[in-house]
Structure formats: C-alpha cells, structure tokens
C-alpha cells in the first residue's frame, strides 16, 4: 500500500506540488494525469526518493520512506521511464539482471529469473537476450524496461509515461500486455501519463492534477460521471465523455434477456464494451444487437432504447 499524506515539494521556495494526499491499496493501479508541468512526475519520483519531499509523509505499507536507506528502498520498487533508460553498453539479459545482481541473488536464480521475465513479456530469449538495446525496436526496448523493473520482484511499480514514446499500435499492445500482467501479478502500480485513454484503460484509481495540486480523484467511472469542474471535464474528453464512459462498461452488465426470436442479424460479443456496441449499432443501422458468447451462441440482446433509459449509468461490479 502506498500512502501520500499532505505531501509537498518546493523548488527554490516555489511549491512544485502541494497538499498531495492519496492512497493506493495493494494490488491496485493508480494513474496520475494532468497537463505538462502539473507536478505529476515530481509526485511519482518522490515515492522512490529520486526527489526528496519537503513536507507531509509518504508511507509504503505503513512505513515512512525516509526511515529506510534510499538505495534499499529503490531496490524494492520497480521503475519504468519513457525512454527506457536501458544501459546502452549492456546486453538485454544483463540489463534485466540489474536489480537481482544488486540484491546479490545467486547466479542460477538470476539466470532463471531473466528467462522467466523475458518469456512473461513475450521476448524471445534466444533471439534477444544477447542483443544491445540499440538493436531493439521501440516496443521491444520498453518491454525490456518493464522486465528490468519487475526483475527484483518488487511489490510496487512506478512508471513515468512508460508508453509515451511509442507509436499508437505498439502503445496499445503494451497497454494490453501490462493489463494482462497486472491481472496475474497484482503489483501496486502508480503511473504518470498525459494520455487519458491509457489512464482510463489501466487505472483503478484516477488522480487529476493541475498546478501542483490534486483537482479530483476517484475511480475512472466516478470521475467520468461527475467531473468536478470544466478542467477535469475537458481532460476527460469533453463531448466524448459519454463514449469514454461507455468504453469502460461491459456488454455483459447491460444486456437484456433474449426474446423468442433473435433481435437482429448484427452480433456483438458478450465481452465487448458498450462503446463497441454503440459503434456497431451506428454502422449497421440497428437499434438492437444480438449478444453472443465465446462460442457464437446467442445469449441476450443489447437495446439502444434500454441503454438510453439507464439515465444513471450504473457502475458494474465495482473493482
């Protein structure tokens, strides 16, 4: 668990961040979002003491971070940055092995860990382990960056715009990958991004920052439903907000039961999002869709009229 209590940082007397209080329970993902210079990176970097905080308290699992040796602290925290920060003079395997080596793990354990992580991130050991970072594609390099951050098996992962330098396709793929990993690893993750879609996709807890302060925080759906001011609303997509909200809702939670006959020739998977459902309705000129399960068996119907009548878009199984 990560707790920030009224944290403050001043650079030369000017407050860079002020009154930051937030709590990330173990195994949850928290996204810090805001325009550039709003202090989100500063906040992140105070957690592993790359920057020292000037006021308030930061606790990891109840323990104030200034009571621990910063080096020991950092070895317990994984860290991913935008331009990977891989060491150009080390091969991939050595880069990944960095933290385990610092922790003085035995050699066999390190080798096994490197192989395990490369497999976990979809990196071919035979092909890539002995390459230098400059020989990798952007996506591969960032995967290595994530593998390196996970190598020491830390409970906490900090990511500073981890996918910001990647092309949209690669970025989306890596986001999926991280979501998949998180569903099995259950790390406590704090990440910084200015890509709202990325934040909505990955985060359990969304923190909106402006000028060094937290403007609003809560679950993505809660924020989408009730943005506090125009700034938050514009960050959340302005007029697109409804669609962004629909993207977070599953068909399975909003479908009606199947009548005697199939409602429509247009089909949608039960695992799809409402946003995809709305898209198909527009494309096929259909007010109702047939919901099918994984084996293409009809299991229900999705009706536009019913969706619109759900004035208060109920939150599905809350995480």
């Amino acid at each position: 668990m990560i707790e920030l209590i009224d944290v403050e940082k001043r650079f030369g007397g000017v407050a860079a961040v002020e009154g930051i209080s937030l709590r990330v329970p173990s195994g949850k993902v928290c996204a810090l979002v805001g325009t550039s210079g709003c202090g989100k990176s500063t906040t992140l970097r105070m957690i592993n003491r790359l920057i020292a905080h000037d006021g308030g308290e930061i606790r990891l699992d109840g323990q104030p971070i200034d009571s621990v040796d910063p080096v020991q602290l950092r070895r317990r925290i994984g860290y991913v940055i935008q331009h990977t920060g891989l060491f150009p003079h080390w091969r991939v395997a050595r880069n990944i092995a960095l933290v385990p080596r610092l922790l003085r793990w035995p050699k066999e354990r390190i080798e096994a860990r490197v192989a395990e992580l490369m497999a976990l991130l979809g990196l071919s050991f035979d092909e890539l382990a002995h390459k230098y970072p400059h020989e990798l594609s952007g996506g591969q390099a960032q995967r290595v960056g994530v593998a390196r951050a996970l190598a020491g098996d830390p409970d906490i992962l900090l990511m500073d715009e981890p996918f910001g330098a990647l092309d949209p396709l690669t970025r989306e793929k890596l986001q999926e990958e991280v979501a998949r990993l998180q569903s099995s690893l259950h790390k406590t993750i704090v990440f910084v991004t200015h890509d709202m879609d990325e934040a909505l996709r990955l985060a359990d807890h969304l923190v909106i920052m402006r000028a060094g302060r937290i403007v609003q925080q809560g679950s993505p759906l809660a924020l989408l439903r009730a943005p506090e001011d125009p700034f938050v609303e514009s960050l959340l997509g302005g007029l697109e907000r409804g669609l962004k909200q629909a993207a977070l809702m599953r068909v399975r939670d909003h479908m009606g039961s199947l009548g005697p006959s199939l409602p429509s020739a247009s089909r949608i998977s039960i695992d799809a999002s409402l946003r995809q459902g709305l898209s198909i309705m527009l494309r096929d000129h259909a007010e109702r869709l047939t919901v099918v399960d994984g084996k293409d068996v009809p299991v229900g119907e999705l009706s536009l009229r019913r969706l619109i009548k759900e004035t208060q878009w109920e939150q599905p199984t809350s995480p």
Binding site: L50, V71, I81, G85, P88, R148
Partner: peptide
C-alpha cells in the same frame, strides 16, 4: 540512463 541507474538502486 544515470537516473535509471539511481532509480534501480
């Protein structure tokens, strides 16, 4: 690169 080194411990 140097910051990454620090951050890795």
């Amino acid at each position: 690169t140097l910051e990454a080194a620090t951050a890795m411990g």
